[in-house]
Amino acid sequence: MVDFLDSQLYQRALVGALLIGFSNGFVSAYVVMNRSPLKLSALSHSLLPGIVLAVWLVGLTAWSAFVGAVSVALLMGLSSVWLAKKTPLDQDTVLAVLYTGCFAGGLAMLNRLQLQQELEGWLFGNILSLSNADLWLSFSVGVLAVVVFSLFRRSILMVLFESEVAKTLGVPVNVIRYGVFALLIMVLMTTFQAVGCILAIGLIVMPGATVRQLTHSVTALFCWSGILGAIGASLGLLMSYWVDLPAGASIVLVQIIFFIIAFIYKILVRYKK
């Protein structure tokens, strides 16, 4: 433990794990209530070509990656809706087609643009390579997520619960939806750094899925999901150090252990009643 904390590399990674884990955990409450994790998974895979293109054109900065990611996400989201209307296919099928195509396109671009050394980082994450700028970005995204969901909590929950009724009551439904969508993209961007685009969905779903089994309170769901996300990411990083496992995989494994513990606890409580 002392060695771990002595290493500046791991110190920075631990701070990153806490920040990224918290922001992902916090928004996972929304993802779970929205019942959209698989759509988000498709989205996270499809961001790759946008990020790669942005990196190739202007170099890797927080803004270039974000703009590239949002552009592709919007294009994919709108295309899936349009194609689902124009073909006999449902939106899930169209999303599956688009996201695998986008992901394959991203991998091809990484190869063609000779960015192979970036490949493993994008696919599996590299939390040990976080810079101070990355930490500030993660911190800012986390603060933004808490502020947005706290300030607009009422509207966001009403849109989730019954969007048509929310609209008739005066809630700006489309603004809320697009705003939360953009926020989810920003959080996903920070997730890529920790666990990569393949496992990103784990971090942005599992804490909420775990806590939702244990509470009916929306406030508790958001708060405890954030806390669990931070704890899980930190423990996963520690585990990767001790057991010599890839950090991204360790982080997600710890989250699934938490999920299983919550599930067993729920069964035991029900059994005792």
Partner: peptide, 23 residues
């Protein structure tokens, strides 16, 4: 309505006050 949102009955009824309290 989306049953995944853990609203209590009171919270559902409170939605009706949105035009008066806003966000």
């Amino acid at each position: 309505h989306q049953t995944a949102v853990p609203f209590s009955v009171r919270e559902v009824v409170a939605m009706g006050r949105y035009p008066y309290v806003g966000n």
